[in-house]
Amino acid sequence: MPERVFRESTAEPRTRAVPLAHLSLELGHLYMEDFQLGPKRLGEHFAEVRIWADAVRARAARRVKRPRISTCFLIDDYFTRFSTPDEVIPTVLEEAGRAGLTIDYLARESGCAVADGVALAESVAHRLVESPPPGSYGFRPPASRTGWLTNGSRSPASPPRTDGGRTDWEPPVETAARNHSIFMDVELWSDDKNGQRVWSCSFLAAVWQLARLGLLRHLGEPVLVPREQDVAALPPDWDRLPPLIKVSDTKAAFSAYRTCTLVPHHFLPVENAVRLVLDQVDVDTAALAQVAKRSADEQMPVPPEVAQRATYVFYEEPGDPIEDGKH
């Protein structure tokens, strides 16, 4: 007879599920300089995005008869503080509307660092599981110390020879290379003058993707959860605005089985770095299981690799005033 094991029900950690749409569609990402150029610049942005958003919706409709699609927009209040929510957000919503677009959820980028007292970025950093390249011997310090994450082994820096001879050069190698290597070394954070950690744009964007995919939890509870917000009663200070707000009457959930992000082509290096981070995050297993089961029940199974659930449209924006790679 098998031995019976008794446990207190409260001793079993429970992971609460979140509602899920079929697709989370991000309607671009702008810099402070874009906002400073005024409504005309925003209007040009959304007019361009509308073309690609329609294509994404049409593609989703081929997969499912009535796709649940929610839209979102991220405002950078982490690296730069500009204007105020009660001035910026109504203008963003109005210009999106002029282009025939509706923004359902609006987030502050600082909320990807800390939201409702939870240090999200730090929590995700603790869940990084690096993939050691074949033949490595632990010479390179872990990402938790260096703030750098890689997909392989970099070209070694050899000490100078004392006998005057030459040291052979060795190339960097991608761990999971196909025929040839594409080596990446991604900075996750840096320290400011006071020794405080400043998260990189790439790492915050990875946290943002995990939130949109419904995979962020803190002690089993969802984090970065949208709150209803009356646009007519927006606060005059960014810190008084919830990290994620719902600004439409959509019934589609914020998080989704898959994401699609519409951004100008100069974001390509950032999003490549995002995928590298997602490939090395040990995501909450219960959250993963919940999404896998529900998507399978709806006959829309998701890839097992989290990074493969995120898709992108990179477009060229005429007259873009922002230099490539800036942020």
Rank of each mutant, 00 (worst) to 15 (best):
D86R: 14
V88K: 07
I89G: 00
I89F: 03
I89T: 03
I89L: 14
P90W: 02
T91H: 00
V92H: 00
L93N: 00
R98T: 00
G100L: 12
T102M: 14
D104G: 04
E109Q: 15
S110R: 12
G111H: 07
A115V: 04
V118P: 06
V118Q: 12
A119T: 07
A119D: 15
L120N: 02
A125R: 01
H126S: 10
R127G: 00
R127M: 04
S131Q: 12
S131T: 13
S131V: 08
P134E: 11
Y137K: 15
Y137V: 05
Y137R: 15
G138D: 03
R140Y: 06
R140H: 03
P142R: 12
P142N: 06
A143C: 14
W148R: 12
L149W: 08
N151G: 05
N151C: 08
G152P: 02
S153K: 05
S153A: 09
R154S: 09
R154K: 09
P156Q: 11
P156A: 09
A157E: 14
S158G: 02
P159Y: 09
R161W: 01
R161A: 08
T162P: 09
D163N: 14
D163Y: 09
G165K: 13
R166A: 07
R166M: 07
R166L: 10
R166T: 07
D168W: 15
P171N: 11
P171E: 15
P172A: 10
V173W: 07
A177P: 02
H180E: 15
H180A: 07
